[in-house]
């Protein structure tokens, strides 16, 4: 019924006017509530703990770089950022490749039980992954995977696949049959069609699922908490929690560590925000 368009929304194409003052007042208030705490944390990292205790809501006076410098040079920040990056990139790559392959098969091949298989994947969306964490831990332990990157990557890939397939399949289905025929006439195999035609055409959706998988992995906490007891393998969320409970009196240091840990996800999201909203449009299209 609803065929998903890959086109960006038509907004912004026409004359953009200034809003009413009320619109701005409301929008500003909302934005302030959303980011004031974050800004506070970032600024707080430039103060000293005594300053913060004396006046919790004040500005840095004087400005100190020491907290950030300390976190970057003395803590495990870099090691943890590296671990997070390896795990998040590994997860994203596997999710995109496997998701694309599965969605391609489910969208462009006709075979018996195809819809059944697809329903199986959509059912995966309904399964509460968090409930499976204890038995999952036992399984990984029996496979001797505890304290390895795989212990986080493999389950994350499995949990992300249903959503990935549900987002990707409509994009791949919407590619006209004629294009596939044309590619075949030009001598492209099915794989060639996937590589040269289908993949470029579904790029927005691929970026969306990639970003979603990356951010989810980057932010995940429960799974690494259970399966990565080795401090050298800890990811940033674990690091933030450890740092904050280890240095409870060093408020400024915790603020600095927390802001640095926020940075990558924020940057990544800012760069990809348009793509995400565009990709979700396909997913929530009514």
């Amino acid at each position: 019924m609803a065929v998903n368009s890959v086109l960006p929304p038509s907004t912004g194409r026409r004359q953009v006017s200034w809003g009413t003052p009320l619109t701005y007042a409301l929008a500003l208030a909302i934005a302030a509530v959303s980011i004031a705490p974050v800004i506070y944390v970032v600024i707080g990292g430039f103060r000293t703990t005594p300053q913060i205790v004396a006046d919790p809501a004040g500005l840095p006076d004087p400005f100190v770089w020491d907290n950030y410098a300390r976190v970057l040079t003395q803590s495990n920040f870099w090691q943890q950022a590296f671990n997070s990056a390896v795990i998040a990139l590994g997860t994203t790559l596997a999710v995109v490749v496997l998701g694309l392959a599965a969605a391609f098969v489910l969208a462009r091949y006709r075979f018996r039980g195809r819809e059944g298989l697809y329903t199986f994947f959509t059912l995966g969306l309904l399964f509460p992954a968090g409930a499976a964490i204890l038995p999952l831990y036992l399984m990984l332990r029996d496979l001797n995977l505890i304290n390895s990157y795989y212990a986080v990557i493999l389950p994350q890939v499995a949990f992300s696949l249903p959503l990935t397939i549900v987002i990707l399949r409509p994009f791949l289905s919407a590619i006209p049959r004629e294009l596939e025929d044309a590619a075949a006439i030009d001598g492209a195999s099915r794989l060639g069609f996937l590589w040269r035609v289908a993949m470029p055409l579904s790029r927005p959706a691929l970026v969306t699922v990639g970003v979603l998988a990356f951010v989810a992995s980057w932010n995940s906490f429960l799974l690494p908490l259970l399966v990565l007891s080795d401090v050298n393998l800890h990811t940033l969320p674990l690091g933030v929690q450890n740092f904050s409970s280890q240095y409870t009196t060093d408020t400024a240091g915790v603020l600095a560590f927390t802001s640095l840990a926020m940075l990558p996800a924020l940057l990544f999201f800012t760069l990809a925000e348009k793509q995400i909203v565009g990709g979700l449009q396909g997913a929530v299209k009514g």
């Binding site: 200034w18 809003g19 929008a27 934005a31 959303s34 980011i35 996800a265 925000e273």
Partner: peptide, 21 residues
Amino acid sequence: RFRGRAVFRLLVFVPYVLAEV
């Protein structure tokens, strides 16, 4: 539709992107 809308949209999403931890 108003000028600066994209910036406001981005700011509103910030809390969602941050890790729960």
